[in-house]
Design a protein around this nucleic acid. Structure first.
Lengths: 125, 125
DNA sequence: TAATATGGTTACCTAATGGATACTGAACGG
DNA sequence: CCGTTCAGTATCCATTAGGTAACCATATTA
């Protein structure tokens, strides 16, 4: 129904879709998604799945994704506490696009690293 | 042929593909790509196509993409100077994935903005 | 009493990034 | 001699990202 007019346009400086597009390229968001791909995970499981993330930053990332309705945070009133994170339906629709980006990155990493070396050799002599 | 072993794995903290994945989500890179989709463009054309980018930042972005072999920078020795940017073959392979991200962002922007509002109302009262 | 485990939060700090603004160089037009 | 065009640089400042380390609440175990 909305084929004629685009409500959002990423090329427009003030369009909110632009900030959304940016966020999905932030440092940890894609990795959180890939880790949640196969089902709900606990906080410390995510920490292990994603190498090198500090708890603070992981918390920030998760909160921000929760705020955007991309995942849910469920607290189970047990001791010790258990908190599970799970993609929402909306969040799951992002898995496809992210998987494509991931494959591209992995498939072309070698070429890019070579290009960087060539460039640096030419311009740093 | 490389179905068995992955040379690069974005889930590994030290893998270079990770930095590559991150870069394609930076603020201006996707917009540069979309602007170059239909052919070479000059510096000031890009500035206009992409709203709100300062020359310094645009230069940084373009240089970084050139370094990675994703676009070429051609200087024509004229006066006033003319510099054209054009996607390389490698760069062009990124257009598909980026287009998918763009569509996702535009299609789901409204839902996400609504989720943000709901979240903020619940947690800021 | 205290250590342990979980799932965080908070305060604090630094380095890098982003952005605004003004300026340069080189040739041409007037 | 001055202004204009193009493609950037230079300079400065504010914001942010990310990291470290300490802390909290709770119940169990010893």
């Amino acid at each position: 129904m909305d084929t004629e007019r685009r409500a959002f346009d990423v090329m427009s400086p003030d369009c909110p879709s632009r900030s959304i597009m940016q966020r999905m390229g932030d440092k940890w968001t894609p990795l959180v998604f890939l880790a949640l791909e196969s089902g709900p995970r606990r906080f410390s499981q995510l920490r292990q799945d994603i190498g090198g993330v500090t708890p603070k930053v992981l918390t920030q990332t998760l909160r921000s994704l929760e705020r955007d309705g991309l995942l849910t945070r469920t607290i189970y009133p047990e001791v010790p506490p258990r908190v599970e994170y799970e993609l929402t339906e909306l969040g799951a629709t992002l898995l496809g696009p992210l998987e494509i980006i991931r494959e591209w990155s992995q498939d072309h990493a070698e070429k890019i690293l070579r290009a960087r070396n060539d460039y640096d050799e030419l311009n740093e002599v």
